[in-house]
Design a protein around this nucleic acid. Structure first.
Lengths: 181, 181
DNA sequence: TCCAACATGTAACTTGTTACATGATTAC
DNA sequence: GTAATCATGTAACAAGTTACATGTTGGA
């Protein structure tokens, strides 16, 4: 069984719900006021995503805490949801992830407290290696780059390399700061 | 008149066509084999995008160079297309761009050889300043970050800061390497 | 001749966007 | 009471994805 690919928004929602039950409005507030705000906050995205997760039986309504006429609809993870989240977090880091979905990888990492710390270490190692290999490829491309009349394309490519290396450095530093096993 | 927001794919196509006429297949080849590959290569994206650009009268079919039964459909920019591209490139760098569409900004920069070099300098200055301000905001968030039982969220936030600063450094370095006015 | 690679395109679907609608709650 | 804000949700649209369809061309 191949797992349904998880959008960044769904992953962010699952991860936040794994910490405590929340309503759609709570989630929106987090997305608009914190650094998690990289991940969309429009109601037209959040409420359908919550509905999809409930349909998958990965979330369920949390018991109402207030008894107003229209109680806030908070959701919590089901056991299946928690399992699906952990399985997604534990997936190997692919080259495609590194090139196309680095943001998603970082989001995954931010929730990896749910897994044993060795998983985080393994993840960071795969990430650092993959980033290093990718930076090397980009460097080869830069070396072979035709010398155009304008400097901007080379500079843009150089940014790709520097940014990739910066993330690789971060990954190695983060490994050091994880608690030892 | 507010300009139609330009998707990264449309921008990449316009920029490449500004250098030489190309067919959809040529574009796909560039996207799949070079570092520009960050910008989608599926035929289901490229051909509709080419059709949209032609509908806008920003591109037109280039004169056929071979006279086979089914000549490759190459496109070239129209004067209006070139103007639209230059106007898009010259737009100010917004905070939203920096947070949400950094890739798109770098793509814009890579085509800025079309404009006087002062525009590139202005762009890089705005970018470096905006990135610095954003990194500062993230640092404040990190300082105020609740001390959780797990280190991953703080580390992920730290990545955001380091990556932002790395790009700011690149922008300042790139400014130095532009030819003087 | 026939098969692989070239080249363009379409259909169904996914998931996001903005703008709007609607009702509940709270502050004044 | 009423206006602002809280909170959930929908509709129309945008632009990507994968998978498929179709015809062309060149080489063994």
């Amino acid at each position: 069984m191949t797992s349904t690919p998880l959008s960044s928004l769904s992953l962010a929602i699952l991860g936040l719900l794994s910490m405590q039950p929340m309503s759609g409005y709570d989630l929106r507030r987090i997305f608009t006021t914190t650094a998690m705000g990289r991940f969309s906050a429009s109601p037209g995205a959040i409420y359908p995503a919550l509905a999809r997760l409930e349909f998958l039986k990965w979330t369920k309504p949390a018991p109402a805490t207030s008894s107003s006429l229209r109680p806030r609809k908070a959701y919590m993870l089901t056991a299946a949801g928690r399992t699906a989240l952990k399985e997604h977090l534990a997936e190997p880091v692919t080259r495609e992830d590194i090139i196309w979905r680095l943001d998603h990888l970082l989001l995954r990492f931010s929730f990896m407290g749910l897994l044993p710390v060795e998983e985080s270490r393994r993840f960071l190692l795969q990430l650092a290696d993959g980033l290093g290999a990718y930076a090397h490829e980009l460097q080869l491309q830069l070396d072979a780059f035709p010398d155009l009349a304008v400097p901007q394309p080379r500079l843009a490519l150089a940014h790709g390399i520097e940014s990739t290396l910066a993330t690789a450095r971060w990954a190695r530093g983060a490994m050091q700061s994880l608690p030892p096993t």
